[in-house]
């Protein structure tokens, strides 16, 4: 997540001070990714160093207000225009755990899958309930809409995770013979490799 660009985008809207930026960010993203105030100030320092924002006096109550510069505005436009491309797949602990579990002998992969699916389903239920409640207010307020869209993204993410777990389970069932401990003997009879286990 680019905090730098997020904060700059908020400054594009209007000049703000640190705490204000933090609460604007959190409200617009449904407090899904909490920021600590230290991160906000470090980021503001860097924005200033890079000429993307400048200090613009205080608000009369001692808060230092920041304002976006012309090159800051360009930076924001470029950020919105550029698609988010993950060049390296983001580190996914679950995928790592599962691929290790599938290749090690002493792990009960089915149990792992099941426990994970239950946990992911619980998340999905929570997101779905929050989504339902958020939609009830039927508001057009931009912050409510932003929150709903964030929830949608979480719903789709949890759904994808569960589908992937189902996929892994199906794969495991089909390949149970192949993944058992003596690969050599099974290599000789490939047709058995995908046979369904008998009930």
């Amino acid at each position: 997540m680019s905090i730098r660009h997020s904060l700059l985008a908020l400054l594009h809207d209007q000049p703000m001070y640190g705490y204000q930026l933090r609460s604007e960010f959190e409200e617009r993203t449904g407090s899904t990714w909490p920021l600590n105030i230290g991160q906000v100030y470090t980021t503001l320092d860097r924005l200033e160093r890079d000429g993307l924002a400048v200090k613009d006096g205080d608000d009369g109550e001692g808060h230092v207000v920041y304002r976006i510069t012309a090159s800051g505005k360009t930076e924001v436009s470029q950020w919105f225009a550029a698609p988010v491309v993950a060049t390296n797949p983001p580190r996914n602990e679950l995928a790592i755990k599962l691929s290790l579990a599938m290749t090690l002998d002493n792990v009960d992969v089915e149990m792992l899958l099941q426990a994970q699916r239950t946990a992911s389903m619980r998340n999905l239920q929570t997101y779905t309930r929050q989504r339902r409640e958020a939609a009830k207010s039927d508001s057009n307020d931009s912050q409510d809409v932003a929150w709903i869209l964030v929830l949608d993204s979480l719903v789709f993410g949890a759904e994808a995770e569960i589908r992937w777990l189902d996929h892994c389970e199906g794969w495991l069932r089909k390949h149970r013979f192949r993944t058992s401990k003596s690969p050599a003997s099974h290599a000789a009879e490939p047709t058995n490799a995908t046979k369904e286990p008998t009930r």
Partner: peptide, 26 residues
């Protein structure tokens, strides 16, 4: 569809005719 199961209070997982796990909203 996991997406639809997400609307439920409780989700049962069946496997080979048995309930193997349940997810409940907490």
């Amino acid at each position: 569809e996991a997406r639809h199961a997400g609307w439920a209070d409780r989700v049962l997982f069946l496997k080979d005719g048995r309930i193997v796990d349940q997810a409940a909203q907490s």
